[in-house]
């Protein structure tokens, strides 16, 4: 029981995320123009890119919050198709943290976290609450368990959201700009938790604008623009000698202000 606290569950295959030529259209607008990506188990990948580059869309395709129209997405050996069994299985194995936290305002922090384990994993309430409290302790706010989300600060809410995702024992964690809606002084407390998770061996795909975090934690950085992956590089190379003009431009805009 305690072992699961230390790291993610074993995966079935080594390449937990495999995307092959993924296309997505919104009406006539092509948001993803053939994206290829393979993420290994335990890897931390950060996706960067200007707004509207399709990075959020891409990450949301990975647990079927958006539907891709062409190409294949295979998560932990299960292909994302219209098959409801696959969708629910993949969602069980993929945790997601949103920009706007998306906590359930009518439930207490503890109920927010235990809702899914009890109803999806069919755990007993005691077991779910035990694990929830452990995760709340790990993200540093066990004393807030009986409060409502509205009573917490933004940083605390986001940590609850992380704990909510983790209590489901996912194999993969998706972060969709987790710090963008936070006040500056609260960003670090969330990044600390993410760093901690990365060290514990979670497979993480994160869309973020936190360059420091990307440089320090990511094993690979993926730069997207116009619905395509422009560059995949190690953090060191990405920031110091990027290969693409587009990347250079982006970095100069980001770093020179």
């Amino acid at each position: 029981m305690t072992a699961i606290m230390d790291g993610p569950e074993a995966t079935k295959v080594s390449d937990v995320i495999v995307c092959r030529d993924v296309h997505k259209w919104y009406g006539d607008f092509e948001a993803l123009k053939g994206v290829d990506l393979t993420v290994e188990a335990g890897e931390v990948v950060v996706i960067l890119g200007p707004s509207g580059s399709g990075k959020s869309t891409f990450i949301r395709c990975m647990n079927r919050l958006e539907e891709h129209q062409e190409g294949r997405i295979i998560i932990d050996g299960i292909e994302l198709t219209h098959d409801v069994r696959n969708i629910s299985e993949i969602r069980r194995e993929v945790g997601m943290v949103f920009q706007q936290f998306n906590l359930f305002p009518h439930l207490t922090v503890l109920d927010n976290i235990t809702l899914a384990p009890i109803n999806v994993r069919k755990w007993s309430r005691d077991r779910a609450e035990e694990l929830a409290m452990k995760w709340l302790t790990r993200v540093g706010i066990p004393e807030q368990a009986d409060k409502y989300p509205g009573q917490l600060s933004g940083g605390q809410q986001q940590r609850v959201a992380i704990a909510r995702a983790l209590t489901m024992q996912p194999k993969i964690l998706l972060f969709d700009e987790p710090t963008s809606a936070l006040d500056p002084e609260m960003i670090s407390e969330v990044l600390d938790v993410m760093r901690d998770l990365a060290k514990a061996g979670y497979t993480i795909v994160a869309v973020t604008h936190e360059m420091g975090f990307a440089r320090e934690v990511a094993q690979r950085i993926i730069f997207m623009d116009g619905g395509q992956i422009v560059e995949i590089n190690s953090p060191e190379n990405f920031f110091n000698n990027p290969t693409h003009e587009r990347t250079k431009l982006f970095l100069s805009q980001i770093l020179n202000h």
Partner: peptide, 25 residues
């Protein structure tokens, strides 16, 4: 919309989504 998405991302089914998340709110 985020409430629907959060519920979906946790893997709970439609019935549970409406019963626990959407309708109470």
């Amino acid at each position: 919309k985020g409430q629907y998405e959060a519920a979906d991302s946790l893997g709970i089914n439609t019935l549970q989504k409406y019963r626990f998340i959407i309708l109470p709110q």
